[in-house]
Design a protein around this nucleic acid. Sequence first.
DNA 1: CTATGGACCTGAATGC
DNA 2: TGCATTCAGGTCCATA
Length: 275
Amino acid sequence: MPELPEVEVTRRSVVKNITGARIESLRLGKPLRWPLGIDPLELAGQTVLGVRRRGKYLLVDLDDGLLLLHLGMSGSLAFWPTRTNPPPPPGPHDHFDLWTDRGLLRLHDPRRFGAAVWARHEQDPVAEKLLGHLGVEPLGPDFKPDAFHAGLKTRSAPIKQVLLAGELVVGVGNIYASETLFLAGIRPSTRAQKISRPRADRLFAAIIQVLNLAVEQGGSTLRNFSNAQGEAGHFQVHAHVYGRAGEPCRVCATPIRWLLQGQRSSYFCPKCQKP
DNA sequence: CTATGGACCTGAATGC
DNA sequence: TGCATTCAGGTCCATA
């Protein structure tokens, strides 16, 4: 479910509830992708200073250290203010329940590809391992067309896989990779280094446009997504190509094609998108 | 260093 | 209806 827009929407709905909250206890369910790295008892008494996002990671800043949360493929966060809306008991897929004096922050993740990891600082080796190699934030001030094009020039892999790798720019997942490449008129199989400056600029603009729109619309990754209040995304962004193999292109009516790249599905219009 | 495939895990959808 | 197979929004890691 979660690509950058969903994670950002989650962050926004969580941050206002939990900033300033005092941690009372932590209940863990089944193991997530990595061990937490701290005794849950040591978190009690700490205050949540804020929630930031880096790529698809959420960084929950505490008095002493931070929690790195990742939603993996199937994760979602929910917050229950204790008074107004008491939380149900944990279900079989609720693997991380952070109780605070303002309510419960719960990570629900059926597939358990997600993570909750504690790090002393952002420079802690544990955090560095997860965040250190990440590329620039596409919605931040450091995402610039010059550097983006220069980065593409250094990669011989297909552009779709360069986007997914997140080393040049973070946050573009499997759905939005296909969608941004459609808007830019570039086939997923095109080698990154072969993309001309004008086409790199189109892709650059498409990434910002698509991700921004999706954030504005409440994290509309085309399927079931709800924010931490349980409000559904708006689903107004309908896919141009993703998941539409065989169906007519919305622009030119040519059948959309499917392609497997690095074990992931890609979709493109053979007429609108050039090699 | 890059490129590739495998691994992690569960549930929903599809096919016989 | 039942059971097997396929696929799913991520990303780290071992291997070549």
